[in-house]
């Protein structure tokens, strides 16, 4: 492979592996900015991956080429519905956020495989989807010399949408009234409450947004990468998205870049064999890197003050 092809392959695979992480980590950012710790992202991704796959298999003849895009929407909706469990538990029932998130992670794979067996005659995994989300050239942009070839040819459009969404999320969180309110219930819910902001409502929105984005993230996994649903479709990506959110200091744009970086680490484990210096490195280095880097960054570079102040605290409205 020459340098150009290597570069094109790295950029393209980076974006493919980063896309699910970008969406899910943005979801995590919304949830935690609103004060609800969401370690259940993994479970939410499972539901998104499962639901989108079932949709795709059932309706690919009806919707044709539009199927994968609709499947992402279905994944997002089902992720949102599933995250209601987390919202009810943490906001209304005063459950510990970590326990509730862990319940999501235990419940989702069990429910998804259970339903797979119900729908597909007892088989533990779904059939392969017919219409997958494939890489394409982005019109106009891909015509730019060199840059167009590297970044916009043979690329995953949803990945670019994710990158744009990160900037949009930043705008929503930091430049809109909704964002200010959302952050205020994550920093100081008591103060927000005295100002007449409905803490419960804002926290519900925060969790449901994370459910929708996590569901889309999971759906991208099954629509673009694994092409079916089985137990190992989602194997740690939710936790990696959580890591990306922290690495990005609970900031949407930071989370997006962290997700891209983790996608890059994953792509190196695939493309690495063709790159002169690192071709001798063992695969395990790239697999461990995202997690190890997160610990190091979290321990040495991110102060305790970075997380929203009331993140993980249950708010009980006084009567």
């Amino acid at each position: 492979m020459n340098t150009m092809t290597i570069l094109m392959t790295i950029v393209s695979t980076t974006l493919i592996y980063a896309s699910p992480l970008i969406f899910t980590s943005l979801g995590g950012t919304f949830s935690e900015r609103g004060g609800i710790v969401n370690v259940g992202l993994e479970g939410i991704m499972v539901i998104g991956a499962f639901a989108s796959t079932v949709f795709s298999i059932s309706f690919n003849e009806t919707f044709g080429a539009a199927t994968p895009w609709l499947a992402l929407i279905v994944g997002g909706i089902c992720g949102l519905l599933f995250s209601i469990v987390h919202a009810v538990a943490t906001v209304n029932l005063r459950a510990n956020h970590i326990i509730s998130g862990t319940v999501l992670n235990m419940l989702a794979p069990a429910a998804a495989v259970f339903l797979t067996k119900v729908i597909y005659d007892g088989k533990g995994q779904t059939p392969i989807i017919q219409q997958n989300m494939s890489t394409t050239d982005i019109p106009l942009l891909s015509k730019i010399p060199v840059i167009g070839d590297i970044f916009f040819s043979n690329t995953l459009v949803i990945g670019w949408i994710g990158i744009l969404l990160a900037f949009a999320s930043w705008w929503v969180l930091y430049k809109t009234r909704f964002g200010l309110r959302l952050r205020s219930v994550g920093e100081n819910p008591e103060a927000a409450d005295t100002l007449g902001i409905s803490v419960y409502k804002m926290r519900y929105s925060a969790v449901l947004i994370s459910g929708m984005l996590g569901g889309i993230g999971g759906a991208i996994m099954s629509q673009a990468i694994t092409l079916n649903y089985n137990v190992s479709t989602i194997a740690g990506q939710g936790f990696m998205a959580l890591a990306a959110m922290i690495f990005g200091k609970w900031n949407p744009i930071g989370a997006m870049f962290a997700a891209l970086f983790f996608g890059f680490a994953q792509s190196l484990s695939i493309v690495g064999a063709y790159i002169p210096i690192i071709s001798g490195w063992n695969d395990v280095v790239f697999k461990v890197a995202p997690y190890l880097i997160t610990i190091v960054v979290l321990a040495f570079f991110i102060g305790k003050s970075t997380a929203p102040k009331a993140d993980g605290e249950t708010f009980i409205k006084s009567k």
Binding site: V39, I98, G236, F239, L242, A243, V288, Y291, L292, T294
Partner: peptide, 10 residues
Amino acid sequence: VITTIMLNYI
């Protein structure tokens, strides 16, 4: 919580 989750995958 985060470090132990990450250590699981490592």
